[in-house]
Design a protein around this nucleic acid. Sequence first.
RNA 1: GGGCGCUUAGCUCAGCUGGAUAGAGCGUCGGCCUCCGGAGCCGAAGGUCAGAGGUUCGAAUCCUCUAGCGCCCGCCA
Length: 588
Amino acid sequence: MDLEQTLASLTGDAIAKAFDLESADPLLRAADPKFGDYQINAAMKLARSVGKPPREVGAEIAEAIRSLDAVAEAEVAGPGFVNVKLDNAWLANELSLDLKGDLRIPKAEPKEKIVIDYSSPNIAKQMHVGHLRSTVLGHALVQILRSVGHEVIGDNHLGDWGTQFGLLIVGLETWGTELNVELESASVKDLEQLYKRASARAKQDEEFAERARGELAKLQRGDEANLAIWRRFVEVTLKTNNAIYERLGVRFEETLGESFYNEMLPGVVEEVTSRGLAREDQGALCVFFKEIDPKEHGKPKMQIPKRLKNQPVILRKRDGAATYSTTDVATIQHRENHFKADRTIYVVDDRQGLHFAQIFALAELLGLSIKADHVGFGKILGDDGTPLKTRGGDNIALGALLDEAVARAKALIEEKSNEGVLRISADELDAAAEIIGTGAVKFGDLAQNRTTDYRFDWEKLIAFSGNSSPYLQYQYARCRSVFREAGIEWESAPTEMVFTEAAEGDLARELARFGDTVARAAKRYEPHLICERLYELARAFSRFWTQCRVLGAETEEAKMSRLALVALTGRQLERGLELIGIGVLEAM
RNA sequence: GGGCGCUUAGCUCAGCUGGAUAGAGCGUCGGCCUCCGGAGCCGAAGGUCAGAGGUUCGAAUCCUCUAGCGCCCGCCA
């Protein structure tokens, strides 16, 4: 259900009617529980225009909304706050509808077609922690936006074209035999080693660098031999990455790397130039935003952001090669023209903020109407507050990171199983560890506000207590366990509810907020809101669990009602975790 | 030099369009297992929200300035 939207509209109408207004914003806010469930703060704002003291206005608002079915109590307090307590019977009915109606997540209006650009690893390099946030966040956003009704295309914009391939080809020629690396059997790790070596050599050895540039040029001209090598690089990298995507439960609708846009680049350059948006400078073709007047490009209302004025965008280097800016312009055009997308979202770290601001401004000047958002995020830091690396200073491979998470999960599951706290048998151990371990990594990442850097901490992640995914998975397993105990199918849970105990009402109030949270997470691109919601829900459930007997309830009606609460809790935990890409276990 | 961002409890972090006494987790201290799963529940201690001004009935939140830290800025992506 969409509790907040429903309440806001019900109370807003009531207020408008009471004060004879066209419409009114109730300024509805979730309240501190000691004051009620929600509070309406419109009285302070309305007081002036109505010409009455705020408290008096508040009293009238309280009076006006008291008759609503959804409202059990409404009282004015303090300077004019109106504290609202929800009606249990109304709430029970709404939650019952949620249970029958697949949670009734509110749909976004209008429905849009959205291309989400995420993960985007480079070819011939292992995926590392640097790709974790983009992959996990992007995947979560795909599912969240889909759940509110959008049509979403996930696109893996591979770094599969560029200068590294010249170096790789020459590196392979030079050290392939020595390092026992053959094209047919090379692993991504091998390629990464080759690249490092070649890159270092090129910095000191001009002749070597020149050879690399030569091979690159051949590749870019479409030389068959080099293309074959390049294809092999792509193939082996994708195969390795797919194993990781599989573990993460990530699937892309499209994998259109930079190379895909290659043949469109001259057209982009031509178009930008012919529209008078670019000019040559020091041999490079550049866009100088400070010289552009949007009015002359049919964009009278457009403001060029201040941050774009001081540096140009380079579309073509002195050597004639296009840059990633050009590719990104081609990409955004393709998303509008080919996919007919209404919106495109780039899940790429914050450091590229300026780049995307440039691309979006350029796209607008070129007359594109697609909406574009850069969903940036901060860095993952180690214990010492610097970007997370291995002791040797290398990036930590994503596969290795997941392995460690799973190993740590496994050790802890074994320990807890021995203590009798968990009931995971030996033959379920590996599968459970995989779900719990990878889930913990994802949750640890997604639970953070994406815009800030965060400190990666195994202890916190795998401690399995507090705000963590294992805690949520555990509460879910409890939900399922009651039904097994009761001998009732999980799918055919009772749906009618009656609340008598405080803990039931408290849990119901948490359950009522699920839809609003998903809607907000979708609107703001913030999966951490879902993490927060699920954690609040799980805590309320756990309190309910200690205070209310389910199977041992006093009456049959109470038992059925509590089973319904348990079922709805379980469904929200499962769906919420699914939205952020985390699996559950029926028992653990 | 220009631009973007950050600064909240001992530590790690939430805090939405401005609302009442700023919240969690971890850690610390103290309670709770005749009862459906204790990875649990209840409670306590712990804060000049970096600092100074301003707007407002009301500011952690909006504006300005200052300090500290981080990141970005023409031929890498």
